[in-house]
Design a protein around this nucleic acid. Structure first.
Lengths: 211, 211
DNA sequence: CTCTTACGCTACGGGTCGTAGCGTAACTCG
DNA sequence: CGAGTTACGCTACGACCCGTAGCGTAAGAG
């Protein structure tokens, strides 16, 4: 989803090249792997994509937005496995997320755009809609499944119950995603099966004590 | 701790100006607040500090290392309060860390250098020694205090017990620091007393179930 | 006083940014 | 098919920042 307006409708003129879109996003990820965020240049991406530099600027206003879009699609790979019990499902998601963040282009790009978003509200909103909110569904879905299995108590009915459920989901998301990111990027140790198991154990045990 | 060699010893010649060091680091933090990471330039920092650009390069090889040092000192403010029970101690640290990360220069700089460290091993090591390891002590200290109070079981003696303790401390650190960072920077909501309480509750409840 | 190092200043080549202008390519509509 | 409209590739450009070199001067050590 490039930056400019949508074009699918019967608008006159030559349409945007979808192949160029893909080539640019692929080139951006490749360049991130090779060069990292700091040394990534728009000219280099254009050259790798076999595209004129002006074509990049017709679609994305700057490096930040380009990289957000280039990385966002990677997060759509994540799925909530249905392994029959909540702990196994959590472990599955943790390992998927860990594997995703182990990829050089993912960790480099994600942290860089998050850093930039601290002084750029539009970018923060773009990250939220393109990446974060898409993944929060995994937490909500996991809770619903566990409630149907009877592993978690059902939500308290009424607005205050829904509020409490939303807050808890937010806390869980911050805990899981934050811990994985921190381990991968700061501690710099792998998210292996054993660590995922320990994390899910703490979470499950801990959630029983909330209110 | 600038990049170049140490100079305190009776080395001939004019010594490095300690005032310039402080002015540069202060200017770096101020520039981070105003400009963010992406638009921060060495020339701008030098101008703010009232120092020649060449003086910056005599001490720090590049923007990354300068910013790491500029931000590292902020993390030394963190202390483990002794409030008499483990949960209160954890909440205190969580709120301190949250307040620290709420400052614009801290979050901007921390994420930016972490992003850069994914493709720069030397920078990663600098971050680890200057920031991460300094804070891990809080976790270790908190565990020791809780064990003395009888709130946590003592470590299993022997090497495998120490290993398990180290792994648990690492997990806790990733959980706490990761969750706070994620909430502050990605979710973009404040680390208030209520959230700190819920986090510490989950942690305490969850740690009982490990092994 | 001499030696050595740090500092401020100026200047510079090299690189990236983001834009403008042009001719051409591709598609829609009448 | 022709006219209108939009996208593309290419070139060129001013602006900015980087990191370094060279010089004269300032400040401690012996």
């Amino acid at each position: 989803m490039p930056h400019s307006a949508s074009s699918p409708k019967g608008r006159p003129g030559r349409p945007r090249s979808a192949a160029a879109d893909r080539a640019i996003l692929d080139a951006t990820r490749a360049a991130l792997v090779d060069l990292g965020w700091g040394k990534l240049t728009m000219g280099d991406v254009a050259a790798r994509a076999g595209v004129a530099k002006t074509t990049l600027y017709r679609r994305w206003a700057n490096k930040n937005e380009l990289v957000v879009d280039a990385v966002a699609v990677l997060f759509d790979e994540l799925e909530l496995p249905d392994l029959g019990c909540l702990q196994a499902d959590i472990e599955g998601v943790v390992r998927q997320f860990g594997a995703l963040l182990a990829r050089p282009e993912t960790k480099t790009a994600l942290m860089a755009v998050v850093a930039e978003s601290t002084t750029d509200d539009a970018l923060r909103e773009r990250i939220r809609s393109a990446i974060v909110d898409r993944q929060k569904r995994l937490v909500v879905l996991g809770r619903e499944r566990a409630q149907q299995r009877g592993e978690l108590p059902p939500d308290v009915p009424g607005p205050e119950g829904a509020l409490a459920a939303a807050r808890t989901a937010g806390l869980i998301f911050d805990l899981i995603a934050g811990a994985i990111v921190h381990r991968t990027l700061v501690t710099a140790e792998p998210v292996d099966a054993e660590w995922a198991h320990r994390l899910s154990t703490v979470l499950l045990q801990g959630l029983g004590g909330l209110d």
